[in-house]
Structures are given as structure tokens and as C-alpha cells.
Design a protein around this nucleic acid. Structure first.
Lengths: 351, 351
DNA sequence: ATTAACAACTGAACCGGTTTAGTAGATATC
DNA sequence: GATATCTACTAAACCGGTTCAGTTGTTAAT
């Protein structure tokens, strides 16, 4: 068997308690004794059992993350891996690990949170993809599970939030398009059930209003590629079809751009396109995608830190506000097309 | 505080031991008593503490996965999210959770495994991205941490493996290109340090040999987009440049295709391209990418199952062999170009 | 000189389960 | 009728830490 605290205590000629004090830097042992104990512990290669520690101190030394996504969609989202990497960089500095749960089926999400809470597997969870009137907030309160939310929920939430304002990025995209002479700038939004779906649409509306333009070219989609195609098709069918579309994420922008091209439109000649997230593949699209670069890793770091602070009681009480994302201009945006005399539709869109 | 086994015992008028027997379906209690105990437990809402269970039964009820990747690269890989989702579907049926570790810095990988092993945070780990002479195998043996590897390591490994043969997919891609009349079929390989990097190259070589073609158009890259660009550039600079390139993954194929297009080559007119993985965005490329569709979710399921089997001693001793991936033909592959008389290079490649 | 305060430790209780050893009562064995 | 066997249970040890309540020896205060 592995070496335990008793082995160390015996080898050092002290009691278990003394070893515990020595290890945890608590008073109750002299410096000389502490050094001796630590030396013996090192020699024996003692690694305190997390299980025993957890039992006696009623902590799990783990944080939970439940990702609710269609598995098909999961692989397409560049956010999570980087976000998780960010969480890890924070946890690596503390004695915590990350327990990841993927809920693919409906209903599985709540079960996942209960599973994490029930046996005391985690000390707290990070809530992503916060929804309008998110039921998870009540659930977590009922389960007495500490949490941190990504962005502040619209419903009343007792949990600290780590926010990254969408407004600036979307505003920058709209401003960029306006500067290029675009007037009919559409928006393909993510599911409005998600607060980041909403906030991006609201940011688009606000930016349009600021520019004195009507925000009437909106199509709701669901952050997926097929959804992006459908929403793009809908916007392009309109009589006053947009000359530019601001998408709520890269995947929809990618599929939307691809769809427009198959319809005979030139990007950016006939249609300018912007994404959101700066997924790496977007720079290899044809044309490379103008998009908004967020920093998911930083977000992960901050969220984990906020949760740890809350757990050890050093939470400031204020939400963490992260730096706003920046617009990356690439080749998918260009000057607004000059309307050709006597022809209102571009080729390929006659249907 | 939460309700414990003692509360249940007291409420049911039995000893703690009886409750434990009743809960775990062990003999030692009559059916009548068992029912009564379970009923009381349910009424009180008792959820046995995983921590206590873990301490007394010396189990963590968790599996570990260490992902060693540059954070930049992480978000681009469609494999992991789906793979993890697969692991979860298996774990959901058992009382296990997944502990995820992301190692971004060099050296962090070994630390991550040690961290998981030391405190007894996990009962076993799943090893992905197995490398040539992978040092982790010795490490895990030293740490006495059970494991399952994805694909069988080339070095001697005591751990069961879950394998998905690359050969068939790559062979199908080469055959497809040969059928289209291609003769100079190159391969942009992943890092040859990885056994899946090697096996894909070997599969390409074997398929070329089978078709009576020379396998001399090889360029090693590293599974990243910039690497794909560099390797593609190298192949296209050759005097006998390829008319088709089989890439070891989608990301390199994407960036390689993009690079070829910027050099004035038409895909597939001048150059046919195939990927590997079937990342969702590949169908929205311009042209959509011919690629090889694996099933990472299935792989995750199988790996988790194999590890659980090993942990409870029901491991069969044989490696699990998964179904081979299939070729998805899309528009990035087409007939080999007919050499134009008097011109050996296409436009744009004069430099 | 006496008491108080304190530092440095020990022994034991405790966290919430599992598991072993033991016991009482019923039933079977000869 | 004495002994063995089985069932259904209990009490207590145990897992490996943390922490509380004492104990001892030393220094400070009066």
C-alpha cells in the first residue's frame, strides 16, 4: 500500500496531528520539527490522500463544468477547448481538478448537475451558455452548489458572474461595415434563448440605430452551420436583401458565406460577412473571414478564479468584467456593392 | 448538514452496517428489512457521500483524461469534444465521472498525470495521441495507474488498447484519387512522432505501392493549419508536383487547400485534396472537402468501457477493434488535370 | 514565589461510509 | 437433547486525513 500520514508520523517520531500541522503550514509545531517532518515525508514519498482529505474537510477539491450540447455541434465549437484550457491554468495553481460532464440528451443536463452535487463530487460549478430565465440557477440553489456564471443572467442570480461584453465587438463590426458604405446590414443571430444570442442581437440593433439605419434584417438561427444556411437564405430572399451580414458566431458565418457563394454571390463583392469567435479555420476560408476575436482562455481563467474565490470566501461581491473582444478585419468584408442600373438582383438569386 | 448513513440507520431502527448492506444489494438483511431501509433512505433523501465511499473502498469513482495540446490548437480539433461526449455516455451509465486535464505547456503533461495519480483522484486514465516510444506508458506503470490507450503503442504496453484502423480510410482516399486518374498523389502527414501520424503515412505508402505508384511526395507537418500550409508549399514547389494531396487531418487539408488557391491553383481542377476527420466546417469550405469520417464518440464510449472493464476485472485481455472510418467524397477531389502542352507549371506557381 | 500565558506537542474524536468479527435466535442434524 | 449450521443482524474497527481538547514544559507578569 501507499504511504500514509501514520507512516510519516511514526518515521518522524511524532503524532499524526503534528504531521498534519506541519504539512498545512499551521501553527502547533516548531520550525525544527516541521522541517524534520517535511523531510521525512519527502523521503517516504508521501502524497496525502485526496479522498481522506476530502472526507475530513468536507471538500471535493474539484470544480464541475457541464456542457450541454448536441455532440455533433460540440466538435465545431472552438470556444470550449480553449475555455477549459483556461480553467486548467488556474486550477493547476491550486489543488483542484476539473470534472467535466457532457450532456447531449435533453434532460441529461439537470441529471448531470445532480450527479455532481449529490455525492459531493465537486465544490462548485461553472455555468456557461446561460439562457433566458435559466432554470439551472434555481436548481443549483436548491442543490446548494456554489456557482459562477458566464455573463450575468437576466433572471435574479445569487452567483457571481464573469462577463465579457459582446457590445463592443458587434458594434465594431457594424461600424466597419458602415464605413465601407453598407446600409442594409443584416444579422443572423444565435438562439435568442441564450443571453449571448440576445445580447449580440441587441448590440447589432443598437449599433444600427446609432448609425441611423433600420435594424430590420434579422433572422434567428441556432449557432449551427445548417441554421446559418437557413437564416442566410431567408435574408437573401428578401426584396431589400442585405449587402452585409453580421453573424453571431463563426460557424454560421462560415456556412452562410458558403451558401451565398453557391448562390452565385461573390463575397465580399456582393455580400460582406462577419463572424464571431475567431475560430482558427476562419482564416483559411475562401475568403478569410472577418471576425471578432474573443479570449476564451482568459475567460476560463477568470471563471475558475472567481469560483475558487467564492469557495474560500474571498469573493469580492462584484462581477468580473473582462476585456472586450476586438474586430479582426479580413477579406470577407469589402465595400458595399454599387447597385447596377436596371438590375436589382445579382445573378443566381432570381429564385 | 446533509443526511448520512447514520441518520438513515437510526430512522429505520437498524445499524449502519445494515443500511450499507441494503443499499449495495448485499446479503445480510432480510428482504423486508431491506425494503424498509430503502424506503426510509428515499424518504430522507439520502445520497451516499462519494467521498466517504471513496475513502473506505479506496476508489475515486472517476476516470482521467489528459489532453496535451497547444491551447491555440485545441479549439481547432473536432476530435476531442466528440470523444469526450462518447466517454460521458458510457460513464453516465456507471457511477463514474470524468476528470479532464489540459496540459498546454511542455512538461505539464507528466505533472498532470502525477497530479491525477498522487492523491488518488482517478482510478484510471485514457491515453490519447499515443506517441512513438511513448514515455507515458512507463510513467503510468510507475504510478500504478490503470490505463487504456487509443491505438496500440509501438512500444511494449501492458494496457489494453482501443484501436481504429487508419489504413482503410487512407486506402480508400488513395484508391478514389487513382480512379480519378491521379498518378502523382502526395501526402501531408501529421507529426511522425505520433503513431497515428505514422500509420496514416504508412497506409498512404502501402496504398500507393498497391497501385504501382511511387510514394515519394511526402511532406511531414504537425497537424496544424500553418504546418499544412508549409508542407503544401513544399510539395507544390517540386518539379513533379502532385495533382492530388492526401492530408492526415482536416485542418491541414483546409489550410493547404486555401494556400493552393491563393497560389492560383484551382481545387480540384489543378489539385485534388482530401482530409481526415470530417470536421463539420469542412462541408462549408469552398469547395467542400472530401474527407474521411471517423466516429470519435464511438471511440470514447469504447475507451471508457474498456477502462471500466479493466478496473472491475472483467477485461477480456484483447484489444478492442473499432469499425474502420469511411471516405466521404465531396467537391475537393476531381479528375486529374490533363497536362497542357508546352507548359509544365500552372499559373501562379512560377516563383 | 506564584500564577498566567503561551508554545509545542499528543491522544482521541471525527468525517461517512465499508467490512469484519461476533451474537442471538431459528432450524437442521444425528 | 446436544451440537452444528444458517440467517439476520449489531458493534466496532477501519480507510487517512483534520481538528479539538488536553498535557507538558518554558517564559512572562505580578
Amino acid at each position: 500500500m501507499a504511504v500514509t500520514i501514520s507512516d510519516v508520523a511514526q518515521a518522524a517520531g511524532v503524532s499524526k496531528g503534528a504531521v498534519s500541522y506541519a504539512l498545512n503550514g499551521q501553527p502547533g509545531v516548531s520550525d525544527a520539527t516541521r522541517d524534520r517532518i517535511l523531510k521525512v515525508a519527502k523521503e517516504l514519498g508521501w502524497k496525502p490522500s485526496l479522498r481522506a482529505k476530502g472526507l475530513s474537510s468536507a471538500k471535493a477539491y474539484a470544480l464541475g463544468l457541464v456542457v450541454a450540447r448536441d455532440p455533433k455541434l460540440l466538435g465545431t465549437d472552438p470556444f470550449f477547448p480553449a475555455f477549459i484550457a483556461g480553467i486548467e491554468t488556474t486550477l493547476a495553481e491550486h489543488d483542484y481538478t476539473l470534472v467535466l460532464s457532457v450532456a447531449t440528451a435533453p434532460g441529461a443536463e439537470e441529471r448531470a448537475y445532480r450527479k455532481l452535487a449529490d455525492g459531493g463530487r465537486v465544490d462548485g460549478v461553472i455555468l456557461t451558455d446561460v439562457r433566458h430565465n435559466d432554470s439551472r440557477i434555481g436548481l443549483l440553489r436548491e442543490l446548494r452548489l456554489p456557482a459562477v456564471t458566464l455573463n450575468r443572467p437576466d433572471a435574479d442570480s445569487p452567483f457571481p458572474a464573469v462577463s465579457m461584453d459582446d457590445t463592443d465587438g458587434i458594434t465594431a463590426a457594424v461600424d466597419h461595415l458602415v464605413a465601407l458604405g453598407h446600409v442594409r446590414i443584416g444579422h443572423v443571430g444565435g438562439a435568442q434563448e441564450y443571453i449571448h444570442g440576445r445580447s449580440r442581437r441587441e448590440a447589432w440593433e443598437a449599433a444600427m440605430a446609432k448609425a441611423g439605419l433600420a435594424a430590420d434584417l434579422f433572422a434567428e438561427a441556432d449557432f449551427t452551420a445548417p441554421g446559418g444556411v437557413a437564416a442566410t437564405a431567408e435574408l437573401l430572399r428578401r426584396a431589400d436583401r442585405p449587402t452585409a451580414i453580421v453573424y453571431a458566431n463563426d460557424l454560421m458565418a462560415t456556412s452562410g458565406q458558403s451558401y451565398a457563394q453557391t448562390q452565385g454571390l461573390s463575397v465580399p463583392g456582393d455580400l460582406s460577412v462577419t463572424g464571431y469567435d475567431n475560430a482558427e479555420f476562419t482564416q483559411y476560408l475562401n475568403p478569410p473571414l472577418t471576425t471578432i476575436a474573443t479570449d476564451p482562455m482568459l475567460w476560463g481563467r477568470a471563471a475558475a478564479q472567481a469560483l475558487l474565490n467564492q469557495l474560500n470566501g474571498t469573493h469580492s461581491g462584484e462581477d468580473t468584467q473582462l476585456q472586450a473582444p476586438v474586430l479582426l478585419v479580413r477579406a470577407s468584408t469589402g465595400p458595399a456593392p454599387v447597385p447596377a442600373a436596371g438590375r436589382s438582383s445579382p445573378p443566381g438569386l432570381s429564385g
